[in-house]
C-alpha cells in the first residue's frame, strides 16, 4: 500500500525527525559551525598560509570541500544513529511498529531525516567557510549529487549501526574507531599524490576518499580520482546498505522479540 496514507506517515516521521534536531540545535546544528570555524582558522589561516598551494590552489581552498564533507558525513550518521537508537531505547519505536506504516517508509523517514540534517549542516558550514575563503564552484550538479548521495550513505550506515546497537556505547564505537579515522585519512587535508605509492594504493580502499574527491571536483574541477568511478562506487554502497537496513527492519532485528 504505497498510497497517500503511506506518504502522510512518511511526512509524520520526517516532521518528528526534523523537529528533534531543531529542538536540540545546540547539540546538533551549532557544533559543526564552531568546529569548522576552528578548522578554518587553524588549518586554513594560521598553518595553511605556511603550507602554500596544493594542486595549484591555496591550502584553505583545497581543504574547504573536505571539511564541508566531513561535517555532512558526521551529522548524517549521528542524526540517524542517535534518533533511531533512542527510539529503540525509549521504545517509542513501537509507535511505528504497531501502525501500518510500510517498512520502506520507516526506512525512508529516518534516512531523509538524516539527509536533511546532513544537507542543512553542509549549508551552515559552507556559509561559515565563505567568511574565510573566496571559493568558486565548478559544477553545481555534481556538488549537489555527491553531497546528497554521501549524506544518504552515512544516514543509512547510522541506521544499521543503531539497529545492531544494544547499549549507548555501541553507537559511538563506529564513529570513533572507523568513521573518524577514515575521514581524516580520506584526503580531506592532503592530496594522496603526496603519499608514497604503497599508501596511495591503500588509500584507494577508503570509500570516503572517493566522496571527498568527487565533492572537491564539484568545487575546484580537479580530483585525485575518476569522478564516474566515485559516483558508481558511492551508489553501490548505498544500494548495499539500504538493502541491508531494509532487511533488518523488515525482520525486526533488534526491535521485535
Amino acid at each position: 500500500m504505497y498510497n497517500k496514507q503511506a506518504f502522510i506517515a512518511l511526512y509524520s516521521i520526517l516532521a518528528k525527525e526534523v523537529s528533534r534536531y531543531f529542538r536540540i540545535w545546540v547539540q546538533t546544528l551549532l557544533p559543526p559551525a564552531i568546529t569548522m570555524t576552528l578548522y578554518f582558522v587553524i588549518f586554513g589561516q594560521l598553518i595553511g598560509s605556511r603550507i602554500g598551494d596544493m594542486d595549484g590552489v591555496s591550502y584553505i581552498e583545497y581543504i574547504t570541500p573536505g571539511i564541508i564533507m566531513m561535517s555532512v558525513i558526521t551529522n548524517s550518521y549521528s542524526n540517524v544513529v542517535s534518533s533511531f537508537f533512542s527510539a529503540k531505547f525509549q521504545r517509542s519505536i513501537e509507535e511505528m511498529l504497531v501502525s501500518p506504516v510500510p517498512t520502506l517508509f520507516i526506512l525512508m523517514g529516518y534516512i531523509f531525516g538524516g539527509v536533511s540534517r546532513g544537507l542543512l549542516t553542509g549549508i551552515i558550514v559552507t556559509i561559515v567557510a565563505s567568511q574565510f575563503v573566496d571559493f568558486k564552484i565548478h559544477s553545481w550538479p555534481i556538488l549537489f549529487f555527491v553531497v546528497t548521495l554521501t549524506s544518504m550513505l552515512f544516514a543509512t550506515g547510522g541506521l544499521v549501526n543503531a539497529i545492531f546497537a544494544k547499549k549507548f556505547d555501541d553507537i559511538s564505537i563506529v564513529p570513533t574507531f572507523i568513521l573518524t579515522p577514515l575521514t581524516y585519512l580520506g584526503g580531506v587535508f592532503y592530496s594522496i599524490k603526496l603519499l608514497p605509492e604503497f599508501w596511495q594504493n591503500v588509500s584507494l580502499g577508503n570509500p570516503i576518499l572517493y566522496m571527498v574527491n568527487a565533492f572537491r571536483y564539484g568545487f575546484l574541477g580537479f580530483s585525485d580520482i575518476n569522478i564516474t568511478h566515485a559516483l558508481i562506487l558511492i551508489s553501490c554502497f548505498i544500494i548495499a546498505l539500504l538493502s541491508l537496513a531494509y532487511y533488518l527492519l523488515q525482520k525486526g532485528i533488534g526491535i521485535r522479540s
Binding site: 502522510i8 509524520s12 525509549q90 509507535e95 501502525s99
Partner: peptide, 24 residues
C-alpha cells in the same frame, strides 16, 4: 510507557495519527 520523552502530548498524538495515514 513508550513515549519519546521530549515530545509533547500533542506531537505524540498527532504523529501517531500520521503513522495511520490520518491527514495532519
Amino acid at each position: 510507557f513508550n513515549f519519546s520523552q521530549f515530545e509533547t502530548c500533542l506531537q505524540i498524538v498527532v504523529n501517531q495519527a500520521g503513522y495511520y495515514g490520518v491527514p495532519r
